[in-house]
Design a protein around this nucleic acid. Structure first.
Lengths: 404, 404
DNA sequence: TGTCATTTGTTGTTTAGAACAACAATAGGC
DNA sequence: GCCTATTGTTGTTCTAAACAACAAATGACA
C-alpha cells in the first residue's frame, strides 16, 4: 500500500513492465491534461497509432478513461477522437487539523467535487479525528452514483510521516506520536488508505494542477498557523530523502538570530516569519488567511509595517538560499507567505537577489499559490490516484454497488 | 553529445527502449561492482536466465564486457560464470586548474591507470589549457594497446557549466567566460567530449566508487583553493536544477555576518570557511591539502586554533542546513573540509546538531572523501562512460588501430 | 459539388525480445 | 558413486509493439 511504487528500483524490465509503463504514461497524460486527442497521445509518447488505440481501449475497458466524439475544426484530415479521464473515478481526502477535520471528494481530473469541514475539540487524538473523517466519508460515499470507482483515501497531516508505512511519526501541533493512521482509517472504511505530509501534498497539487504545472524543478513553501513546511520537486520527482524527512524548508537557518522556532532551532525561517506575530500586532486572534490579508492591506501602524517588511525580507532571504541550492524553475508560496508576496513582491525579490547567486536568479519565477486552501485536499487525493496511475491494470478500485 | 541522455522524458517505451534499458542495466551493474557472477545478474535484475545469457553475450560481442571462468566454492550447484567490465575500455579526463592542467586515463572499472599534471602559466586561457590537454592525451593515446576502445573525454572545470551544450558559462578562478570547451577539445582530438563542473564530477565519483557507494541521497561538499563547491544526489540522480546551476552549496547563507564570499554574497559558507585564512595564519602560501593537514595537527597557536574551531563549527552549521533540507544518507566532505572533519569531527557534528532537525540527524553519516584528489579525475571519466552506459549498443567507441 | 490531398482510426500480419521448458553440466553432501 | 541443487544452453512459445493496407472523415480547391 505504498504510493511510491515508482520509487522501486527499476532494474530489469520485461514485457509486463513495458505494458504497465505505457498504460501508466497514457493515463498520467490524461490525468494531468484533462483531455487529449488520440493523435496527440501518439506524437507525445512516440508510440504507434495502433498501439495507442490498444492502450486507450484497455484504459476504457478498465473504466479509467472515456472516449468522446471527435472534435472537428482542427485542420485537414480525419478528426481525432478525444480521450478524457473517466468522471466515474474519485478519491477521498482527509486533512486533520488542530480544531477541525476536513474531508473532500476529488475527481480523477483533480477537481474538488465536495468538501466538508467538521469542527472537533482542540488537539483531537488520531482516533477522534479519524472517526469524524470516517463518518464524513460514509456520508459522501452514500451519495455516490452507482458504478463510481473509488481509488481510495489520502490523508494529509501537518507533521512528519513515514509514507511507506502509513504512519504519522510526529505531528507536533496535533500532538500525535507514532500513529498508524492509514491502517486505522482503512480498517474503518474498507478503502485503501495512504498518508503524507500536508505541505508535500499541497506541493504535488500545485505542480500538477496549479502554479507549478509543467515544472520539473520546483520549491513550494507553505506557512500556516502551525509553522512553515514545504516540498521540493527535483528532476520531476518529489524529494523525500533517505528516511522521508527531506524538504523541511521552514527549518533552514538563515540568520544568526537567537529566536527559536517550534522545533527549537535558532534563526530559522520559521522562527523569523511568524503569522502569529502579525496577528498579535493587529490584535486579532484566529483569522483566516483572507481576513489577515485584508488586515495587512488596510494597516496604517508603522510598527506593524516594519515587522511586515522584515518578514518579507526574511522570506526573500530563505528563497534566495533555496534558489541557490535547487536552481528551480519556480518558487511557489502557499498560505500566509502568498499574502506577504502579494503585499510587496518587489521587496521580497530584492531580498532574494541579495542572498542568491545570479545564475540561480535567471528566469526564476516567484509565485503565490494558485490552488489556495484546496491544494491540500487535491494533493491528498493524489495519493490514491498515484497508485492507480502507477499500475492502471492492477489498480484495486472499489466499485459503488448498483442500486437494486 | 549530452551525457544526460537519461534526463530525456522517458514517455513511450517500445521494444527497442526495453532492450536498451536492460543492456544498460546489466552494464551499469558491471561498471559499478567491478565483476559479478551471472547468477547474481539474474536475481538482481529479475530477468530470466536465458535473457541474461543473451544480454551478456551482446555486451561481450560489443567488447564492453568479458566472461571469465566460473569460480568454484560458492555452494552446491554448477558454479556461475563471472562477468566483468572489459579492461579494454578507457576514457580520458581533463582537469584544467589555475596553474596546471591534469590529464588522466581511467579504466572502465573506475580505476585511474595514468595521471599527468602539466604546469601552465597562471590563469591560462581555455585554448592554452586545452592545447596542453590535447598534447598529453595524444601522448597517452600513443601508448595504448591496439584494440583498446576509447569512450571519449570528460573535462571537469571549476565553474558553472551548461552540460548539454558542452560550454563553460563562467569559471571565475580561470577567468573563462562562455568557452565551448567540449567542441574545442573534440576538434583537436577527434574524440567525443563532455564537460561538467569539477565538484559535480567528484560527487559522482564518490557516489559510484568512494564514500557514497550505494547511497541514493547524498550531499557532497568540496573545498579547494577556489572556494567551496558541491554536488547533491537526490533519488539516485544528480540534482542539476532548471538551468543546470543547482547544488551551489558553498553559497548558502548561514549567518548574518557581513563577510562576503568570492561571489559577493554575505555570510555564506564560502565566506566563513576559507582555506586561505588558515594558510595566512600559518604564514605559508601555497600548500597541498596534505601539507596543510600536517600544519593543522602540529599547530600550537591558540589564535589559529580558535579560527580553526570556528571554521569547523560553521561547516557543521552548513551541514545542518543541508541535512534538514535534503535528509541525505550521508554527507561527504572533500578537500580541505575533509581535513577539518578529521581534525575534530566531534565538534563539527555538535554544531550540525544545533542547526538541523532531529529527524534529519537520525542515521546521518558525515564522512571525509575516500577518493581524495583522484575523485575529480574519476568523475570526469564518468561523463564519457555514462554515454556508453546509457546506450551500450549504439555507443560510438574509438578503437585504437592494430599495429601493422 | 466533386475531386484530391491529408490525417486518423481499424484490422490483420509481422517481428523482436523476453519467458519458458527441457536438458546438459558441474558442484557439494552423504 | 549416487543424489540433489544450481547454473548454462538451446529451441520454442508468447506478447506487445510496429507495420502495412485500407477505410473514414476532413479541408482545400477547381
Amino acid at each position: 500500500m505504498s504510493p511510491n511504487t515508482q520509487e522501486r528500483a527499476t532494474l530489469g524490465q520485461n514485457r509486463e513492465n513495458l505494458r504497465q509503463h505505457n498504460l501508466s504514461t497514457v493515463l498520467r497524460l490524461l490525468h494531468e491534461a484533462g483531455s487529449v486527442p488520440r493523435s496527440h497521445l501518439t506524437s507525445i509518447t512516440g508510440l504507434n497509432r495502433s498501439t495507442i488505440s490498444d492502450l486507450v481501449g484497455e484504459l476504457v475497458s478498465l473504466g479509467l478513461a472515456v472516449e468522446s466524439e471527435a472534435v472537428t475544426g482542427g485542420g485537414v484530415g480525419r478528426p481525432s477522437l478525444v480521450v478524457a479521464p473517466s468522471q466515474n473515478v474519485v478519491a477521498f481526502s482527509v486533512n486533520p487539523d488542530i480544531d477541525a477535520t476536513t474531508v473532500g471528494l476529488v475527481g480523477f481530473d483533480g477537481k474538488v467535487l465536495q468538501r466538508m469541514r467538521y469542527p472537533t475539540k482542540i488537539q483531537p487524538t488520531a482516533a477522534e479525528s479519524l472517526q469524524v473523517a470516517a463518518k464524513l466519508i460514509a456520508n459522501l460515499r452514500s451519495k455516490l452514483a452507482p458504478g463510481t470507482l473509488i481509488a481510495g483515501i489520502g490523508i494529509a497531516v501537518p507533521g512528519q510521516i513515514r509514507v511507506s508505512e502509513g504512519v504519522v511519526r510526529y505531528a507536533p501541533h496535533l500532538n500525535w506520536v507514532e500513529e498508524p493512521v492509514a491502517a486505522m482509517l482503512a480498517q474503518q472504511t474498507g478503502l485503501p488508505t495512504w498518508v503524507d505530509n500536508d505541505a508535500t501534498a499541497a506541493c504535488t497539487a500545485e505542480r500538477r494542477f496549479g502554479a507549478g504545472i509543467g515544472t520539473n524543478n520546483l520549491v513550494y513553501i507553505h506557512a500556516g498557523s502551525g509553522g512553515i513546511g514545504g516540498g521540493v520537486v527535483v528532476n520531476g520527482r518529489q524529494m523525500r530523502g533517505a528516511t522521508g524527512y527531506a524538504g523541511e524548508v521552514g527549518h533552514i537557518q538563515i540568520s544568526s538570530s537567537k529566536i527559536k522556532d517550534y522545533s527549537g532551532l535558532e534563526g530559522t525561517l520559521e522562527a523569523l516569519v511568524k503569522r502569529d506575530d502579525l496577528l498579535e500586532l493587529f490584535k486579532i486572534d484566529n483569522a483566516t488567511d483572507e481576513e489577515l490579508e485584508i488586515e495587512i492591506i488596510k494597516n496604517k501602524d508603522p510598527k506593524a509595517h516594519k515587522v511586515l517588511m522584515q518578514q518579507i525580507a526574511d522570506t526573500g532571504r530563505a528563497i534566495g538560499v533555496l534558489a541557490t541550492i535547487f536552481n528551480p524553475q519556480s518558487v511557489v508560496l502557499g498560505g500566509f507567505l502568498g499574502t506577504l508576496f502579494r503585499f510587496d513582491g518587489e521587496h521580497m525579490i530584492q531580498s532574494t537577489r541579495q542572498s542568491s547567486l545570479k545564475s540561480a536568479q535567471d528566469g526564476l519565477l516567484i509565485k503565490a499559490s494558485q490552488l489556495g486552501t484546496t491544494a491540500v485536499i487535491v494533493g491528498a487525493a493524489e495519493l490514491p490516484f498515484s497508485a492507480v496511475l502507477a499500475n492502471p491494470a492492477q489498480a484495486k478500485l472499489t466499485k459503488v454497488a448498483t442500486k437494486r
